[in-house]
Structure formats: structure tokens, C-alpha cells
Amino acid sequence: MSIFKRNSFDASQPALLAEQLSAGYPGNRFALSDINLSIGGGERVAVIGPNGAGKSTLFKAIVGTLQFTHGHISIHGVDCYSSHIYVGYVPQQSEIDWKFPASVFDVVMMGRSRHIGWLRRPGKSDRAIVNDILDDLSLGDLASQQIGELSGGQRRRVFIARALAQDARVLLLDEPFAGVDQTAEQEIIDTLDALTNQGITILLSTHHMHNDALRFDKVLILRRTVMAYGPPGEVLTAQNLRDAYGAAAPVLHHGDARLMFSLDHERES
């Protein structure tokens, strides 16, 4: 509990602020370079860009898996080195060992870990919190299932539930719609709507966007750096998309300013 009290966040500050951020891996030290970005509290941002554009890298830098080479990130005004705990992360399907012996309840309880503290076990209140969250996300009946027994949409929601148990204020979802059917996609979107109502800031990377289905406050086009960032109507122009994806970008005009594109062939496995 103490960590959260000590770092109690300032709602007037941007939920996420990245300044001159560069990050990368050995062999690709500048997978991201000079990222400048400010996201307001409760906003919902779609992060799009071609494969290898650095979407996952950006998320990993924000969540703290990847040490960045330059610049800094702050969450609600608190420097990232002390405030990763406000960041929830829903990983790509392929990053998780779905055969791991953990139940839905166990995975969501992991989010409580920092609240519980070192050398201590989950108490009654932690159990109650986890059970409430599971019920809110209609996962209550699945609590004792092993995570590998769930459908794609349910798996994403378990990790969203874990972020809620963690009290995350900023939620990152890496390709949540990859490999899920229409129904599951709608389930995930409904869950995100509920989070937005709680004022949680959402960043979501995706390869395909249906403007009708997904309402985003802002769109970030990423290709090693910020190519364009702003409201969808301003950012999703044919020119911007061609700049990011190349001349062959499958851009479709739809109405006046609306653009839809689908890049399923580029989906990561």
C-alpha cells in the first residue's frame, strides 16, 4: 500500500508523457528514436504502424522491461522509474506460456502483489478485490480454470482484470485483436469502454482498424518515431498512411474524411 500512497499521482499531469525517448535492443539500439508524446488522463489511443515499427518496443519501454537509451517517461507526472506500477500491460498472446500451472484467479491475484508487499501472503481483502474484479468482467465462473483453457477473448480479459487488480492507471494492450473472432473483439471493446468510464488511460496497438467498431480519442502512427499523432480524423490521412506503410498501403476512402485499412497480411504471428 505504501508505494501507492507515497506516489499518489497528480490527475492534472498528463497520464503519459514521453520526451526525447530512444530505446532499443542489442543489435537494434534505436528501434525507437526521439519519441515525444503526451497523453491525457482517460484518453484512448490507438498505436498503429507497420511491422517492426517499434510498437512493442514502445510498450516495453513504458512498462519498464526495456531500459531506454535516452529521454524519459513519466506517468501522471511521476518519473517512470518509480511509477511503472501504475502501468498495466496486456501482452501479445505469444508472449505468455498458456500451459503454465496458474488459474484465472492466480493470474489476477498477481496484480495485487505490490499492494500485499514483500514476504506476505494475500489477505481476505485482496481475495475480495480479485473476486469483485472477476465478477465485474464476467470472469467469475472461470476463476478456477487453468488459463490455457480459455478462449482468446477471455484470455485478454484476464490480463485486463490483472491490470485492474494492480490499480493500473495506464493500460497498454499489445495487439489485443490479433487472432480473435468478431465476438471476442466486441467483448474486449466493451471491457475497454468500462475502463474508460473509470478514467483509465488506454494505449492499444493494432494492425487493423475499423473506425466503426473502435472509437479512439487519438491515433499514433509509429515508425521508429512519431509519424503523426492526434485525433483520428486529422491523423488518418492517405498521405500519413503512405508515409508510414509505403506507397502500397491499402487505404480505402470511406465517406469524407474516414479511412479504413486492413493489414491482416502483416499481422504478427
Binding site: 516495453k60 519498464g64 518509480s82 506500477i85 496458474a102 491475484m109 498477481m110 496484480g111 502483489s113 514483500w118
Partner: peptide, 21 residues
Amino acid sequence: LLLYKELLIVSFDLTLAHSLR
């Protein structure tokens, strides 16, 4: 026994372990 929940998280999901500092 003392570090069970931390060892569980580190074994299951390194990203969460990092984000929880």
C-alpha cells in the same frame, strides 16, 4: 515460502515483474 508470490510472477510473466519494480 517467503518469496512464493514473487517467484511465481517472475516465472510466469517477466513483464509484470518489471512493471511491479
